Simulated scan of single mutants.
Amino acid sequence: MSPNNASGNGQKSPPAGAVPEQWTTGLCDCFDDPRNCIVTCCCPCITFGQNAEIIDRGATSCFIGGLIFCLLAQVGVACLYTCSYRTKLRGLHSLPGDSCDDCLLHWCCIHCALCQEYRELKNHGLDPSIGWVANAEKMNRGATTMPPMTLGMDR
């Protein structure tokens, strides 16, 4: 196992001595995005599905993620699945916390946690509401429209 994969779950750990970034919004800042807050309160499976698709870079579709959430919610254990995506998100953006915190947070405040994760993705330039393919296309367009970098000084 490499030093950047100490957890063994495929997520990179920040380099030793690196200071983790902070969450861009607080857990209870749900009204920073009122539309997402309402959607998450009424149907958290939608927000979770959107987040999961972006975090998994399209490997999990919004529909499948939401469906799994709904099925697990029926037996009261959705948080055991959703907390793993918070852990993945933290790994992707070097955010503070640990797996136990993620689980406890999703157990106690799943709606607030899903809203915070959605906002975090948006604040990192990704829009969960449009899906992974559209985000990837948007990133590719941005990469091709950047002016070329030159070495040295221009006259």
Results as ranks from 00 to 15, higher is better:
51 N>Q: 15
16 A>Q: 03
82 T>F: 00
2 S>L: 10
91 G>E: 06
153 M>A: 12
136 A>S: 08
31 F>G: 01
118 Y>T: 14
113 A>S: 11
52 A>I: 09
111 H>D: 10
81 Y>P: 03
86 R>H: 05
54 I>V: 14
34 P>N: 05
99 S>M: 07
27 L>T: 15
69 F>K: 01
45 C>K: 02
62 C>Y: 11
119 R>L: 02
78 A>R: 04
64 I>S: 07
117 E>T: 11
45 C>D: 02
88 K>D: 03
126 L>A: 09
13 S>K: 05
75 V>H: 04
28 C>S: 14
141 R>Y: 13
32 D>K: 15
87 T>A: 12
132 W>Y: 04
10 G>R: 05
100 C>M: 07
4 N>K: 04
53 E>A: 07
105 L>Q: 08
4 N>A: 04
20 P>F: 01
113 A>W: 03
62 C>G: 11
65 G>S: 03
25 T>N: 10
73 A>K: 09
69 F>D: 00
32 D>H: 11
65 G>E: 05
49 G>F: 09
71 L>T: 07
51 N>S: 12
138 K>F: 13
130 I>S: 05
112 C>G: 01
84 S>L: 00
104 L>W: 04
14 P>N: 06
112 C>M: 13
58 G>I: 04
56 D>P: 00
112 C>H: 14
93 H>R: 08
129 S>T: 13
145 T>V: 08
87 T>Y: 06
64 I>W: 15
108 C>E: 12
137 E>W: 07
97 G>L: 11
104 L>S: 09
32 D>W: 01
52 A>N: 13
1 M>L: 10
121 L>Q: 03
135 N>P: 06
12 K>W: 01
145 T>I: 11
10 G>A: 00
124 H>A: 09
127 D>K: 12
90 R>P: 06
75 V>I: 14
147 P>K: 15
99 S>L: 00
7 S>R: 03
143 A>E: 08
27 L>C: 06
61 S>L: 07
94 S>C: 05
22 Q>N: 12
15 P>W: 04
84 S>H: 04
64 I>R: 13
72 L>Y: 12
89 L>Q: 09
132 W>H: 03
55 I>V: 14
1 M>K: 03
36 N>A: 05
139 M>T: 15
54 I>G: 03
130 I>N: 00
67 L>D: 06
66 G>N: 08
122 K>F: 02
106 H>R: 01
138 K>C: 09
79 C>D: 02
147 P>N: 02
26 G>H: 10
